[in-house]
Amino acid sequence: MDARALDRELKKGSAELLILSLLAARARHGYELNKVIHARSRGQLRFHIDSLYPLLYRLEERGWIKGVWVEKPGERRRTARPGAATKDVGRIRGGRTARHGRRTCLTGREKCARGCRR
């Protein structure tokens, strides 16, 4: 997966949905988020730092997620959690991504991990 493909997906808005669905499960910070995406796409997908954060900030400005500084002993991290406007992100995921239609298949492979065709 190259950066250009990811950029296309970004433009289509799928990346936003991807991030939202991941955050709907639990709050994560940016680096962790990227790692999860990397792992789940089996190394296919990775955000550049200069795409990921502007995207998170945009979602934040729209009120879809909310960044909070979480203090743990020895570290202080900003963690993103679903914002007030995304209470129904679960439903979105359940509807769109579960059917796993073309637009939401993010891996870009001929045959994706769950078996849908491109």
Binding site: H29, G30, Y31, I49, Y53, Y57, G67, R76, R77, R78
Partner: peptide
């Protein structure tokens, strides 16, 4: 804030 967050990431 942004500097903080990104620096942490790096």
């Amino acid at each position: 804030e942004i500097v903080d967050e990104l620096a942490q990431h790096l």
